[in-house]
Structure formats: C-alpha cells, structure tokens
Design a protein around this nucleic acid. Structure first.
Length: 402
DNA sequence: TCTGGGGTCCTAGGACCC
DNA sequence: TCTGGGGTCCTAGGACCC
C-alpha cells in the first residue's frame, strides 16, 4: 500500500466570517447569515440598533451560517429562522452575499494551490488536498513523527489567512475520511494531524455520526443496536452491518470505522445534473394559484436552460419535483429522445411529468431538473432510437389543469 | 412559530433484449 | 408449457452532504 498524505481544509463559519471581515464592528455579536432575499441593507455602522435582528424576521428561510457567538446560543446552519429567533432574538441577521463568498472562496483555493496544486473541490468553503508529493510531507523529528504533516497544515492555514484574512481548520492524515473527521476536531483554527496508529486512541471514542456519510437515519439505527462509538462500530461483524444497511453501505461502514479509505483526491468531476427549485412564501393551490404557479414554472425552466447554456451542457432527462404542504415530496422523470438545453422543450417535458402527479394538496415547493448531461459540442448525432412521442409545441401545464 | 437550494449516490422494480 | 440467466435503461424515492 502506497503511503499517502491528504488534508481536509474547512473554512471556519465561512459566510459569517466573510461578513464580519467587512463589518468588523459586528465582531463579538451573534450573527446569522440566511433568510430569503430582502431589500439591500441600509444600516448605520455607528448605530447597532439600526441592524436587522433575528426577532424581526418573518418567513420560511433557514440559517445558512451562524457565527460562533450565535452557535453558543444554539443556532446552527439549516435551522429554520423562526426557531433560531426563539433562541437568539437579538442576533444580527444578514442576507447571504454569494457573489462575495465565491470571490473569497476562489482566493483561498488559489492560495492553497500555490503550495499544493492537487485539490478536490467540495463546495464553496472546503477542499481536500493531496499532499503526498509536496516536499517535506513525510518529514519527522525525534519527538514528532508527523512533524512534516503538521508543518504543511500550518503553512496552508497561514497562506489562507494571508490571502483572505479568514481562519480555517485542517485535518492532515493518510486519507480523506480521516482528514474530514479531523478538520472538525479542533475548530475553529485547529490543525489536527493523525496517523493510522492513532485511530484507536483518537477516533474510536467518537460517536459514529462524526463519520462523513453517517447521517441521522443511520445514527438512529446504530443507536438502537447499542452502538454509540466508532470503536464499537469497528468491532461489529461486517455481515451484521450488511444485513442492516445493505451490501455497499454496510461494507463501507466497516471500513470507515477502521479508518480505511482509498478514495483518491479528484481534481475534476463532470456534472450529473442541473436544477432549480423554489419554496413559495405561502403554499399555492394548483387551480386557484395557477397563473402564479405557471409563471414560476416557466421561470425555473428558463433558469435551468440558462445554467445549461452557461456551462455548455445539454441534457436528456427532465425531472419535476413538488413538495406539498405536508412536506411530502414527489418527483417524476421524463427522458427525451434528443438532448436539449431549450427552455420550451424543458417546460414541455416537465409538463408531461406534472400530468402524472395527483395534485390534492397545496404546493410548497416546485423544482425543475435536467439530468443525463453531455457537453454541448459532443452530442451523439443519433442519440437513441426515436420512440415516438408528442412534439413540444403544446405546453400543457398548470394552465389546463382542472 | 417547523423545516432553503443545489447537488451526489444508492436501491429496487419493471421493461426489454439476448 | 415451463424455466433460466445477464445486462441496460428508466423511473421513484430516500439518505446524505455543503
């Protein structure tokens, strides 16, 4: 087995930290980023009482990020803002400024790339870095066998701070699984270094949910079986896990609990789907609100089409997603014979999907997706045998419901 | 005061073909 | 008339992640 060194770098409370960078007078206060698009901020830096507070928020938004002061009050990302307001009514609520976050994201990734160019993007605020071939990665001193890994982690952290003024945390270990886990162990601002020999002492005491890929459902199942730590998970027969979680997940879980992970750092991935969805301010009725729904539907299809065009992509499988007022979600797919990036064709196919859904309840969310993607300049001339279907000139949508 | 938006991957059944 | 497999594509739902 070849020796690897992989880092996971995670920005600390990224969106909130970017906001505080631009508004240092808010430092020390609980700050939450999130909510739906609102009017531009018109607050006075000199007068904190003019800044929007969580308690004044009304609507369906969630917290995207909470500063550490807000986290101390129990607010965390993905929490509904109404619930968050009950916990931290005085927290400052800032609208998300994705353009700015993307700029800072680009900046920190560039700074890392100057030191270690093999980078896997995991979203706007985190990356994996393959350090195996970076000079010094495996240096050791008499009192620190992981001195090279530690020094590299600290160097990356300093480079990010110099380039952005922002703090991040790193895990540096032999693989992605362990590094992801470790970057979270000493947040904010930590560099956690670990070798396979340290797994029993450092990893096994942690709860299974700390493993990336074990979510609420799996955690619940494990808990019911009395498995409360990664060490206990590691001691379970793989056959039992496979019976409980299926072949793939069960086998993976066993390996993960032992800290084994051979996944490479992937520098490029082809996109699999492009989608747009929106949750309405109020639940809409298929018939009573059909004009509103029809307009939103068309808008989503146009956005997806524009996204495809921007990336030079075309797709063949059109998907529709509805969420009802009881939060039940249904999806329908419709595969076309030919690739498309055309808004009208997408809307027609999504309309075919809509026909197959029984609209008994009010609708909370509407989404449109295009999958089975190909590059615009590499479409097969005869993609598939035509199987006969209507032409996209009629657009039966919410208009002809009823 | 319920629960955003953009994704990936897995499972499982049925159609259809050899 | 009954009995096979394997392979691929399509669809629907669900778990999970950032």
């Amino acid at each position: 087995m070849s020796r690897r060194l992989v880092a996971h770098l995670d920005m600390d409370a990224f969106y909130a930290s970017v906001e505080l960078l631009h508004r240092p007078f808010l430092r020390g206060l609980p700050v939450v980023v999130g909510g739906r698009r609102r009017q531009p901020l018109e607050a006075d830096p000199e007068d904190l009482s003019t800044w929007p507070r969580l308690r004044d928020y009304v609507g369906r938004g969630v917290a995207t990020t909470a500063s550490y002061e807000a986290r101390a009050l129990g607010v965390h990302s993905a929490m509904g803002l109404m619930k968050a307001a009950a916990l931290a009514p005085d927290a400052i609520l800032l609208p998300a400024d994705f353009e700015e976050y993307r700029r800072m994201s680009h900046r920190f990734k560039e700074a890392v790339a100057e030191i270690a160019p093999v980078i896997e993007d995991r979203g706007i605020d985190e990356i994996y870095i393959d350090l195996t071939d970076v000079p010094g990665a495996f240096d050791a001193t008499p009192d620190d066998r992981l001195a090279g890994a530690r020094a590299l982690g600290q160097r990356l952290q300093q480079a990010v701070r110099n380039a952005t003024g922002l703090s991040c945390s790193l895990g540096v270990t032999p693989n992605k699984l362990l590094s992801k886990l470790c970057s979270d162990l000493d947040k904010p601002g930590g560099v956690t270094v670990l070798d396979m020999d340290d797994i029993a002492a450092r990893i096994w005491p942690l709860p299974p949910g700390r493993i990336n890929g074990i979510g609420p459902k799996a955690r619940e199942k494990l808990e019911q079986a009395g498995i409360r730590s990664i060490g206990e998970l590691a001691a379970v027969e793989p056959a039992w896990l496979i019976a409980k979680f299926g072949k793939s997940t069960g086998a993976w879980m066993h390996e993960a609990a032992h800290g084994r992970d051979e996944r490479p750092v992937v520098t490029h991935r082809d996109p699999k789907s492009v989608s747009r969805e929106t949750t309405f301010e109020r639940d809409l009725h298929a018939r009573l609100d059909r004009d509103t729904l029809g307009g939103i539907f068309t808008g989503l299809c146009e956005k997806v089409a524009a996204d495809l065009a921007r990336h030079g992509l075309v797709g063949r499988t059109i998907g529709l997603k509805l969420r009802f007022d009881d939060f039940r979600t249904v999806t329908r797919d419709h595969s076309l014979d030919a690739y498309t990036a055309d808004a009208g064709t997408i809307r027609w196919a999504a309309g075919q999907c809509l026909k197959r859904i029984e609209l008994t309840r009010r609708i909370r969310l509407l989404g449109v997706r295009v999958g089975t993607l190909a590059a615009n300049d590499a479409i097969p001339a005869e993609p598939r045998p035509a199987r006969g279907r209507g032409s996209p000139e009629s657009l039966p949508l919410f208009e002809d419901l009823d």
